[in-house]
């Protein structure tokens, strides 16, 4: 394998084939809460990708010096510092979105995706591949967020990025917004459906059944 293909596979594998959300069950917590509108979903995706990439780079640079026993604390402190910086930037320049995201930006700190990647990958690899891996995982996460955010905002309010796309029935159009799309349950249903679609197309991702149905006994002649 040449280094070029490995670069591409490291970057593109997490997009769908190794998607952190649909396959590895990482980082779901925030993935659903911020997807009522596309703007918050995109902000969250960008913030997470930046934090993840930088954290992976930093941890990978000092990976030889972190004592094994306190590595979790060290990683969390690094991630938390990055998150504080992002949070302050958002509060300063995007006050509206920052208010809409409420505590969820702070929760990037405990996003399992960040610690999962630093723990599983950045701790054993050189800075450059770790950052590519982290960036790829950030993109995979963003992909899921943007798909769900688009569906929820489009059908919940008829808008995309706050711009009216489907004319509302109240204002002489034909579209009646689905209030359910803005509530919590729809996010679960949509993500469940997305997992189903992804795993049906890439069938090797499907989980094996926990119990196989008992074989029907041969009818006795």
């Amino acid at each position: 394998m040449t280094s070029r293909t490995s670069f591409w596979t490291t970057l593109t594998d997490p997009l769908i084939r190794q998607n952190p959300v649909t396959l590895q069950i990482l980082g779901i917590c925030s993935a659903l809460a911020v997807t009522t509108t596309l703007a918050t979903a995109v902000t969250m995706s960008v913030s997470l990708t930046i934090v993840l990439t930088l954290a992976a780079g930093i941890i990978s640079v000092i990976r030889m010096h972190i004592p094994d026993t306190i590595r979790l604390i060290v990683q969390i402190v690094i991630v938390a510092s990055l998150v504080i910086v992002i949070d302050q930037i958002l509060q300063a320049y995007f006050a509206d979105i920052s208010r809409a995201l409420s505590v969820y930006v702070g929760l990037i700190t405990t996003n399992c995706l960040v610690l999962g990647r630093t723990e599983a990958y950045a701790r054993y690899h050189a800075p450059w591949p770790s950052m590519i891996d982290a960036f790829g995982n950030g993109l995979g996460y963003s992909f899921v967020l943007i798909v769900i955010g688009t569906i929820r905002e489009l059908f919940g309010q008829g808008q995309l990025f706050g711009v009216q796309v489907l004319p509302l029935a109240d204002e002489g159009g034909w579209f009646t917004p689905l209030g359910l799309m803005l509530l919590a349950p729809s996010a679960f249903f949509l993500l469940g459906g997305l997992v189903w679609v992804v795993r049906s197309v890439w069938s090797e991702q499907a989980e094996p059944p926990e119990h196989s149905p008992p074989l029907r006994p041969e009818p006795i002649e």
Partner: peptide, 28 residues
């Protein structure tokens, strides 16, 4: 549900999300 015969893509995580959605409707 682990005894149920689900579509392959829905097994595990997929159905768990849909169940969570139903529970969430109840809690609403």
């Amino acid at each position: 549900l682990s005894y149920a015969d689900l579509p392959a893509g829905l097994r595990g995580l997929g159905i768990a999300f849909i169940l969570t959605g139903l529970l969430s409707l109840g809690f609403a």
